[in-house]
Design a protein around this nucleic acid. Structure first.
Lengths: 185, 185, 185, 185
DNA sequence: GATGAATGAGAATTCATTCAT
DNA sequence: AATGAATGAATTCTCATTCAT
C-alpha cells in the first residue's frame, strides 16, 4: 500500500503539482480512505520527502559506481550526463517531481535534500578537477562549470517529450558533444 | 495602485511562491483591502499572467534589438546569453517568478506564454541556422542545441546567489565560453 | 455578527463544552457559513479568550467598585461573595464557561487569564489583611483563606440549578454566614 | 496490562486532559499497539468510567469507615474534610482526573457517577443533621452547607501545588477551622 | 493476548472570490 | 476607487474504532 501511495502520488504530482494534488485525489484514485494515507505517512510533506530521498539517493549511488570505474575524466562526465538524462527523462515521474517540487519541503527536509544535491555537484567538480589536472579539461571555475552542465541536463525535464522527434540516446549524444566541444565550428 | 500591486506581489511570489502568497498577504502589505485588489485584477491568475507577459515581452523586445544588429551569429548568441542571465539574475524578481510559477497559469494563458517562449527559442534557432550556414557554428540539431543553451542560462535562477563569489559578468563569460568552445582542452 | 457569534458560542460551550462544540455547530445555529466565523475570529481559541476576558475584566471592575466603598472588611467580603455568586449563577453562561474551559487556552492566553484571576484573589487577600489589622477577621494564612472562600463560591457552577429550591439570595446569605461564623454552634 | 493502561492513562489525562489524550498516546507510552487497548477496554469512555469508579468507590468506603466510628459529628466532619483533601491532593492523579473529566461520561455512566457523588454528599448531610440534632452544629440548610464544605475542599485540585509553601496537613487544619468557626474574629 | 491495516466521520482552518455600498 | 462583510468549497489532518489474523 505504501508503494502504491508513492506511485500514485508521483503520477499526480507530475500532472498537477504538489499543491494541485490533494490527499483526497490520491486516496480516491487508489480507492482507499484518507485515513489509510495517514496510516502510512505522517503528512503530505513526509510523502514528498520520501519521493525526493528515493530519487536522489538512487542517483548518488549510480554516480558513485561511475566514479569508481577506471575511466578518464571525459568518459566519466559523459557517463554522468547520460545518467542524469536517463533518470530525468525515462525513469520519468520521480525526476520531474524532484526538480519541480523541492520548494515544498520545509526547513530540515529541504536542507537534507540540498545537501544531497550539493554532494552530487561536488562529485562532478571532482571529476572536472581530475580532468584539469591531467590536461583533459580546460582549466576554469569548476563550480560554475558543473552548474552549467547540470543546467543543460536538468532543464530537460521542462521540455522533453517522450514522444517527440528526438530520443534520449540522440539527446545524450548532442548534449555530450555540446558540453565537451561547444557549438562553435 | 495597479503597479504597486504588481510590484508587491512579485516580491512575495519570489519569496513564498504563488500558492504560498494569498491575496490578503499582498493587500495587507499595501495597507489596502481585498476589494481593492479585485478592483484592479479579475483574479489572482490574471495578476500572474500580467507579470509573465511583462517579463517575456520585454525579453522578446530586447532579443529583437539584438537580432537586428549587424553582428555575426556568434556575437548574437553571446548577446542573447548575456541578456538572459541579466534578466534572470539582476533584474531579479520577475525572472524568478517567470521560471517558477508558469505552471499556475491555466489553459489559454499557459498556451499564450508557451507561444512566447517558443518564439524566443525559435529566434535562437534562427541565429544558429544563420551561423551554421556561414560556417561559424557546427552543423547540428538546432532545436536541441537551442534548448541546451537555454538550459545553461535558465537553470541559473535555481542556484545563483547575488552575494556569492561570482558576478553576473564573470558568469556570462564562463557560460559563453562553455557554450561556444566546450570544456574539453 | 461578532456579538451574535459570542453569544451563540457561549450557549453551546456551556451545553457541550469547548471541545464538544465545533465551528460548524456555532455557524449553523446562526445560519451563516464557516467563513463568516473566521472573518471575525482568527481561531476558535481567540473566541474563547474573548469570552474569558469579557468575564474576568467585568468581574474585576465590579470588585474594584466594592473595594473603593467606605465599608469595613466584613461588609466588603460579603459584597465580593455576592458578586461572585451572582456572576457565576445568574449572569449564567459566561461564568460557567469561564470556570470550565480555561484549560483550552494555550500559553500566553492562559497566562493572561491566570494573572487576572490572581489579581482577583489578591484583592480578596487585601481585604482580609485589612480586616485582620483592625480586629474584624481572625489572623491567619490569607492566601489559603482567600482560596477557601473562592472554593465555596466557585464550586457553585458545578451544581447550582436555577430552578432548584434555593435562590441566589438565600444561597448568598447561607454562604456568607458560613464563611464568617462557621457551622459550629 | 489492564492496570498499566489505567495508570498510564491517568497520568496523561491529568497532564493533557481527556480530550487531549489519544489512545495512541497511551499505547505508545506503553509500547503496545492500539489493538491491545481495545482488547482490554471497549472504548475510551469505559476507561474513563473505570477511573471514576475506582476513585469514588474508594472514597465512599473510606467515608463509611469514618461514619461508623464512635465520634461526634464535628470530629466526623473533620475526618471527612481530611479524607477529601488527602485524596484530591496526595493520591493525586485520580482525584484531579475525577474532578475535571466527568463531563466526558455520557448518559448512563454520568448518571452512575452523579449518584455516587450524591451519596457522598448525603452522607455529609447526615452527619450535619446528627450534629444539628445534638447541638454541635448550627441549624441550617444541610444540603447547601454540605455543598459549601465540598466547595472548599474540591476546589483545591484547581490550585494546590505539592511543592508550594503549604502542606496538606496545614491546609487541612486551616480549612477545618474555617468551616467550623468561620473567619470572623 | 495482541497486532496492524484500514476506516470514516469530522475537525479547524484557508482563501479566492463576490457584491452591495 | 475602494471597502468590508460574507461566502463556500476545498484542504490537511486527527482519532476512536473495527476486524481478520
Amino acid at each position: 500500500m505504501r508503494t502504491r501511495i508513492v506511485e500514485e502520488s508521483m503520477k499526480q504530482f507530475d500532472k498537477n503539482g504538489f499543491t494541485g494534488t490533494s490527499i483526497v485525489d490520491i486516496t480516491q484514485a487508489l480507492d482507499v480512505t484518507k485515513g489509510t494515507f495517514y496510516y502510512y505517512f505522517d503528512s503530505k510533506e513526509k510523502l514528498l520527502m520520501e519521493i525526493h530521498l528515493m530519487y536522489i539517493k538512487n542517483l548518488l549511488e549510480k554516480q558513485q559506481v561511475i566514479l569508481q570505474q577506471p575511466m578518464n575524466a571525459t568518459k566519466k562526465l559523459e557517463a554522468i550526463v547520460e545518467l542524469l538524462l536517463h533518470s530525468i527523462l525515462s525513469d520519468g515521474l520521480s525526476g520531474r517531481v524532484f526538480f519541480r517540487e523541492m520548494r515544498h519541503l520545509k526547513n530540515n527536509n529541504e536542507q537534507t535534500i540540498i545537501t544531497y544535491r550539493k554532494k552530487f555537484r561536488q562529485n562532478i567538480e571532482k571529476v572536472l578537477l581530475q580532468g584539469m589536472a591531467n590536461g583533459e579539461i580546460k582549466k576554469g571555475h569548476v563550480k560554475i562549470v558543473a552548474l552549467g552542465i547540470l543546467g543543460v541536463t536538468n532543464w530537460s525535464y521542462q521540455w522533453f517529450d517522450e514522444n517527440g522527434d528526438v530520443s534520449i540516446e540522440e539527446l545524450t549524444t548532442i548534449f555530450v558533444n555540446m558540453i565537451l566541444t561547444g557549438i562553435k565550428e
